[in-house]
Simulated assay, not measured.
Amino acid sequence: MEPQRQSSEPSLTLSLESYHISEEYGFLLPNPLKELPDHYKPWMEIASKLPLLIESHQLRAHVYKMPLLDCGSLKGHRELRLAHLVLGAITMGFVWQEGETQPQKVLPRALAIPFVEVSRNLGLPPILVHSDLVLTNWTKRNQDSSRERAF
């Protein structure tokens, strides 16, 4: 009788969900949020008017009036991803509102502190990234189809 061989390789159990990967959508965030809780309304109000505020050169003034909000009320990966998208877009608009002639070199605390905190919680850099612009920021073309992809 031959002795049983024991595998020296540990058995790996991988969970796509633990990496926020979906079998159906891949790296796209399934059903991304469009709103954050009411506590983050100041961020959402600025984000909803971002193109107009940049065009009218008013974004920086609005950001300077923005309160410093605690990120502790953000619950789960989906809220963190939307917060990262919103704060990233506001940051890029704030820095580049006047174009290349007058980029802003310092962010106000009310923008910088939550953006860094959200970024750390997600393991992302505090800058607008591909996962914000594409993977978190999409909708179905046909809302009635449960199987249709965004692309």
Rank of each mutant, 00 (worst) to 15 (best):
Q4E: 15
S11M: 08
S11P: 07
T13G: 13
S15C: 13
S15W: 10
L16Y: 10
L16M: 14
E17W: 05
H20E: 04
I21L: 09
I21Y: 00
E23P: 10
E24S: 14
F27L: 07
F27R: 01
F27M: 00
K34G: 12
L36N: 03
L36P: 05
K41C: 12
K41R: 15
K49P: 02
K49L: 08
L50I: 11
P51D: 06
L52F: 11
I54D: 05
I54W: 02
H57D: 10
L59W: 04
R60C: 00
H62M: 14
Y64I: 04
L69K: 06
H77F: 15
R78I: 08
L82W: 00
L82N: 06
L82C: 07
A83N: 02
H84G: 06
L87K: 01
G88P: 01
I90V: 14
T91A: 03
F94T: 03
F94W: 00
F94Y: 15
V95C: 08
W96K: 02
Q97R: 03
Q104V: 10
Q104G: 03
K105Y: 05
L107N: 05
P108M: 03
P108D: 08
L111P: 01
L111S: 00
A112N: 10
I113K: 03
P114E: 08
V116T: 08
E117R: 13
S119L: 11
L122A: 05
G123I: 06
L124C: 13
P126S: 15
I127G: 04
L128T: 15
V129W: 01
V129G: 00
H130L: 12
S131R: 11
D132M: 05
N137L: 03
T139G: 09
Q143E: 08
Q143G: 08
D144K: 05
